[in-house]
Design a protein around this nucleic acid. Sequence first.
RNA 1: GGGCGAAUAGCUCAGUUGGUUAGAGCGCCACGUUUACACCGUGGAUGUCGGGGGUUCGAGUCCCUCUUCGCCCACCA
Length: 1038
Amino acid sequence: MDLPKQYDPAAAYDRWSEAWAEAGTFDAVPDATGAKPPHAVMMPLPNVTGVLHLGHALNNTIQDVLTRWRRMQGYAALWQPGTDHAGIATQAVVERRMLEEEGLTRHDVGREALVNRIWAWKETSEARIVEQLKLLGASCDFRRQRFTLDEVCSKAVRETFFRLFKDGLIYRGKRLVNWDTYLQTAVADDEVYEEDVNGHFWTFEYPVVDADGTETGERLALSTTRPETMLGDTAVCVHPDDDRYKHLVGKTVRVPINGRVVPVIADGELADMEKGTGCVKVTPAHDPNDYACWERQRGTETEIDILNVMHPDGTMNAAGDVEEFIDLDRYKARDLLVEKVSELGLFKGVEDRVIPLKHSDRSKTPVEPYLSDQWFVRMGPAGTSPDGEKGDDFDLAGSAIDAVAEGRTEFFPPRYQQTYESWLGEKRDWCISRQLWWGHRIPVWRRRWTDDAVVTEEQIKTDTATFRTAGEEKQDTYEARFVEHPEGEGCSIFVCLRDDDAELLKALEADGFEQDPDVLDTWFSSALWPLETLGWPDLDRDPPKKNLKSGDEPPSPVTGTNADFDFYYPTAVLSTSRDIITLWVARMVVMGLYHADEVPFKHVYIHPKILDGFGQTMSKSKGNGVDPLDMVDRYGVDAVRFTMAGIAGDTQDVRLPVGYECPHCGEIIPQTLEHQKARPMGGEKPTIACPACGKESQFSSPWYTPDEGVPVARMVSERFEAGRNFGNKLFNAARFAIRNLEGYEPGPVDVTSLPLEDRWIVSRLAEVTASVTDSFEGYRFDDACRTLRDFVWNDFCDWYLELTKPRFRDDDACPEAQRVLVGVLDAIVRLLHPVMPFLTEELWHALAAVAPERGLPSPTAADETCAFAPWPAFPADWVAADDCARMERLQELIVAVRNVRATYKIAPSAPLNLSIACEESVAADITASAGTFEFLVKATLADVGPDVTRPPGSAGFTLPGVEGFVPLGDVIDVAAEKQRQEKEAKQLRGHIAGTEKRLANEKFVASAPPEVVQGAKDKLAELRQQLVSVEEILSDLG
RNA sequence: GGGCGAAUAGCUCAGUUGGUUAGAGCGCCACGUUUACACCGUGGAUGUCGGGGGUUCGAGUCCCUCUUCGCCCACCA
């Protein structure tokens, strides 16, 4: 097998991805014998909204490195892939495209048709994501691929909802949402943006009234930016310490517009004495702060009312109690209200004010805080939810805090534990309903009985089709909840179904029940990810697995156990981004503990974020995303992975500046913010101008696809060149090695009796192997990559390969040299396999062709694939500090000779002589390396030993314990040599002065550790001796 | 407002428990096609470790403070 001069990553990818898939190399199989311990990684499920970007590439590289590394260590490794339906984000994408391309809204097409369209989108998007994962070399078990809306996941969601509902941990409550009055939907916090608008700040007066409603003559002034909410005022609030108003607390005032009499309350959190008049109107249903105030007052003596005065379309409803306002748009109502209150003489003025107003990202219209009924999961202990459900004692948030505090789940780096704990510590109830069509429909059917005021729970149970059908035998399939309304307004019944039982559904329909139109928060299903992917709640059979060839996913036979769940849960590690520690990580822990009484993962690794060249996080809206496949295409998958892993340590986020390569002249044009923003205007695609050649071209952009057949400036990033160059370096080192392995015979190697360079490289290998293993264990991928790069490039290629070259031409030395060479290379290939799987698999097979049996200290038959090759580990006593020191001295000598050559511009081919003054013991070493000097620096060792003196007309160098001389005869430039030596002397004197100063300090000698003091003394002696040598040379030179 | 993090060479980043006069890659300069590799080799230049104070025999590293930047949470009648 003759390797080409350059590594071809695309060819390697095709060859090995296919071979691995064919062999089922990444199929995760639980090992019942106990020989292979479990190692499971659950992929943070990408959204099916679009394509993966570099952040995904980073995280997926990390997970793949972990998985492949553990697989080599002999674990039964599972990397679970899948995608998330991502409720609002996906629905928004599809709706937007529908609107842009066809001018249709979701109301035009209806619920079913919209959902079908989203499914179609999901299929394409998911396929693209899986394709990207594969092109990144992800060693997932794709037979197990799950989607959060598929049948298996839906079952887990239904089961979870049912159990929580039954345990009283799910309740119906009120919540202020961001309401888009144009699209008539709630909008998530991250889908609203703030924009300053020019508004007004009106001041009104509310008359104080006494118990029987007569005005006392006193008036309270207060200001607002939204006068129309006055219709919904249910209180007026002042600060408890405000002397101006203290006497009014507990009294009542009349709301000017509708005459409603409301209390004056004191709430220091709502009212601010410094702002406005210090007095504030309270409209709990239409303002977040007022709502919070309402919550605080609830259940106290000063409990206040809450009144929704608006229709979903933004017009006023009848609750405001003023006929003229009904059905009037909120902004018209605002003007009318000001007018009416003016007529009453209670309008006190208006000023202009710039108001930061929240807008819906989707309709670009202002959102209204809007009170709505929602489903909640109670996070704290019993009795903490607003309507005091009975519930059991389970404290969801508390259990998750405890688990981490006890160390059952550990964060890397540990500081992120705080984010997790402080968020969960608030124990804020989780609003799980969303007013969307794309997602898990809430499995609750409801009916309100208003027609029959006397109806009781008992009567309904006996009289309705629903409960007759349910009977005794369906106790476990549903849970009903009765809510009695006050004052003879009947009751509501909520029925939660565990499964869609056809009979019960029919009976519910007959009784006039309707299913809740809302869907569940996306995080509700992703919180179950580690459970549902392993087949939970079915614990009597394994989860189904897809036949990748046919695409079928037959149900697993019932065996009485779920081997996958038993074996892989809890999983080993979750690798994710810090911004979803709360949304996702915490909730998975909550659900894992609730359902399985065990944390879902033992470790959480939080990876760095990739920023663009301007320090911004990459995101779709900024347009600064980079498609990893552009990089894979250009630099190769191994290079991209090596660079990604090299970024991942435990602290820094990392900038990754990109540029565009001019298709005309090849010049790199750095990316600017303008490039990120450039979008097609009026169909015209933006172009980029090359400063070097002045030509224009279209360029890679997330906003558009460049035209066919025009020159395109493609995105490039020099960061990946480092990875590519390194891969090519290793590839060529292997090519060289294979060329020199002709006639290779396997055989054992006695490490202790090897030549110096072998003992050195083997020592370094043992050291590096231990270090890389340690780095992976601590999730310090950057350390591992740096260590491996330095070892391979600097030690193995620059020195070891060079040093051993002559031995391959020597029949006696060759066999042993071959064994060591192939043994070291074999270990390097294994060590790099988790990071650069395709390159190393390529080399693995190339090595197998010439050396099927290899390894240190005794050769063994190599595995079929590097993916299952055992992870290297070497005896600790292979690390030989003494040999390394001797090797380093040799290296320094060689560098010094090269330096002389460079200084005097002596051609590499011109032979030199070399004299070295040193102790006998060192001289023996140097004499033994005479061949090396000949070979590496074309220098003949003329003389070596304690008595050597500087030959006339020679350049010199001094090292600790060694003086070297290179006679140059006529070539010597005395002035230049003096200058060189002066510089050296100056440096030495600086060092000496510094060290002397330290040692002269009595406190240093007294308080520093003895080894540090001794180290300084030794160093000083060495430096002085070197200086003496340099000074001798100088005086010699005159 | 609360919390977390960052600031080291032109750029991107390392720098273990404090211990020589601080490192790497890229870029830059000079030389070089020596039979693995020009995606290369050899040699070289490049720093007030953001500012100020403190602790210590000794600070890039620990403490305080200021400045700038990033992220999360809360808030903005």
